[in-house]
């Protein structure tokens, strides 16, 4: 872990780590439930990502502010209360803002409470760092999560509905791939992205090995 206690310097990596190196979805494989369930369209993915990011940043701030006051014995309970509060806020705000989006998210807004990304950030980062650094890190994680959801939601919406963010791409004769909006489609698209990233990583490694004159191993 790069986050050593008492290291208060905020680097680019504090923010970027959540987006690429420790992406919550593609690297840490956390929060799979909303990742698979609400990414049937890009709009839903964006809504879910934004809601989670808000909860992530706000709860990180609060946890970090109180980090020296919270006794270790009740810290998880306290984190959950804090997280649940912000989830409830998001729930009300979303209902007030758009009923359609709220209906599409269903129970998954309330389920942000148990999204392990948020509890993980509270435990691993916010409880050991100053508020600003925690928030920067949380924002990076939230953005990484949102981008990952958009990767899934975009592909699923393009193939499953022929549109992106509700805008038709292929005209009215497009044949939707029904499987993409079914649960199976979520798993397949996630697997596709993981294969792609793993392959890119291996290729990069292979190239650096060849440069170093190392023997290519299997």
């Amino acid at each position: 872990m790069s986050l050593i206690k008492q290291d208060d310097t905020i680097t680019v990596d504090t923010f970027m780590e959540g987006i690429w190196r420790e992406n919550p979805v593609f690297v840490m494989m956390l929060g799979m439930c909303p990742t698979l369930a609400v990414t049937t369209s890009a709009i839903n993915a964006l809504g879910m990502g934004a809601a989670t990011t808000f909860v992530l940043i706000a709860s990180s701030l609060l946890v970090s502010l109180f980090r020296n006051l919270i006794p270790a014995g009740v810290r998880i309970a306290t984190y959950i209360v804090i997280i649940a509060t912000f989830v409830t806020l998001v729930d009300y705000i979303m209902q007030a803002y758009s009923q359609a989006l709220y209906a599409a998210m269903g129970a998954f807004i309330q389920l942000i409470v148990v999204n392990c990304i948020i509890l993980g950030r509270a435990e691993a980062c916010a409880s050991r760092n100053k508020p600003l650094k925690s928030m920067v890190n949380a924002a990076g994680m939230g953005l990484g999560f949102t981008l990952a959801l958009l990767c899934l939601g975009g592909v699923r919406e393009i193939l499953g509905n022929g549109s992106l963010f509700g805008l038709p791409l292929f005209g009215e004769h497009f044949q939707p791939w029904v499987i993409m909006v079914l649960p199976a489609g979520g798993f397949l698209v996630l697997a596709g992205w993981l294969i792609l990233f793993e392959w890119l990583k291996l290729r990069k490694q292979g190239r650096s090995q060849q440069v170093g004159g190392a023997v290519h191993e299997h």
């Binding site: 109180f66 006794p71 009740v74 209360v81 804090i82």
Partner: peptide, 8 residues
């Protein structure tokens, strides 16, 4: 513990 939880 009670005070903290109560406050939060």
């Amino acid at each position: 513990m009670i005070v903290t939880l109560g406050f939060v």
